[in-house]
Amino acid sequence: MSASPWKRLKQSEAFNGYVMVSPTLIYAILMLAAPLGMIVAYSFFKDGYLEVIHEFTFENYIQAWTDPIFQAILFRSVLVSMLVTLVTVVLAFPIAYFISFVVPAQKKSLWLFLITIPFWTSYLIRVFQWKVILNYNGVINSILTGLGIVDQPLQMLNSVGAITVTLAHAYAPFAILPIFVSLEKIDRSFLEAGRDLGESPFMTFWRVTLPLAMPGVVGAVMIVFIPTIGDYVTPELIGGGKLPMVANMIQQNMLKIDNKPLGSAIAVSSMLVVAVIALVFLFLNRRFLRGPK
């Protein structure tokens, strides 16, 4: 009288869920998980001339980590990423707060629209425009010398600062949106309750708004920090190739030098460093991420 086991299975929610997710999952396994696995495997292989020798070795890691250039590049990459993340998030928070708390409800989408438009225009050209702005004979120097504020144009390009400003610009919406979303979720009566219980506006912000917005801030930090460390274009264009980051080094080894095992080891190493920093950061903020959802 009752249904067969096969029919039971077919009707079960888990089975249907797996069937539904399978096309995307298979794609992700083939195109992402397997290649990532390959990179890890390659990083333990030996590099022969024009080919890769499938022999297990730690040689690549030893070579990478004892290389002062790699150390310097990795250090610079982490430093730039942290700086970019700090600048981006610190600038983004007041904007997200402004849109969520000050802008009237019917104008919020317009503001979000305004914030996201620059993000939808060519990344390469946006990065290059910062070169135009920061150049020796660029926009800022033209204004400064034109107004007589400086005699000599300032040398701003090819610096960590220039790279930071450019990346902070590129990742702005990625930081604003998660913070905005978590600010929007805050029940406004919490703030009234804070005020009602005798807190000043600043203390209400400090004790109520900020902790409740932290999941968004943490999300913003993650979504800016992790991809930034792998940015290739900005060091190339704004750093003038003189301040390479890990992505440039990976590209060098993979294409120009054609040492794929070493390139893989560098890629895996930098991903591990990023992962460790991200996990430490998440761990430090764990108390904000608990609770419902």
Partner: peptide, 17 residues
Amino acid sequence: EDISSGAVLIDGKDMSN
């Protein structure tokens, strides 16, 4: 909602299938 065991009958007919 499928049932884990037992039966639901409507108008005398078993509804499990």
